[in-house]
Simulated assay, not measured.
Amino acid sequence: MGLENIWVATLTGGLIRADCIVGVESHQTPELTGKPARWLLDITLAVPAGSGTGDGWEISQLHRTLAQTDSYPAHAAEELARTLDRLRRDGSAGLLRAVTRHESLRFEFLPFDRDDS
Results as ranks from 00 to 15, higher is better:
R106W: 09
A98Y: 01
T69R: 02
R86E: 09
D116Y: 07
V22C: 14
E103M: 05
D70W: 08
R114W: 10
P111L: 03
R88K: 15
L80M: 07
N5T: 09
D42P: 05
Q28V: 04
V47Y: 14
E78F: 05
L66Q: 03
V99R: 09
A49H: 12
Q28T: 06
Q61L: 10
L66A: 03
A49N: 08
P30K: 14
L41D: 03
A37Y: 12
H102E: 15
V99W: 02
L80Q: 04
S92V: 02
T12R: 11
A46H: 12
S92R: 10
P30E: 15
L41P: 06
L11I: 11
R17F: 03
E31M: 11
R17K: 15
A81T: 14
V47G: 02
G91W: 07
T10V: 06
G54W: 06
W39Y: 15
A98R: 00
K35D: 05
H102K: 15
I6H: 00
D70F: 08
P73F: 01
D55G: 09
L3Y: 05
L96Y: 07
S26V: 15
G13Y: 09
L41H: 06
L66E: 02
A74R: 15
G52N: 07
L11R: 12
P48M: 10
F107G: 01
E79T: 12
R101G: 01
L96A: 04
V99I: 09
G91P: 03
I21C: 03
G50W: 06
I21M: 04
L96R: 01
P48H: 13
A46C: 14
S104A: 11
S60F: 05
L95Y: 15
G54M: 12
P48S: 14
G94Q: 04
A49I: 13
A67D: 00
T12V: 09
G34W: 08
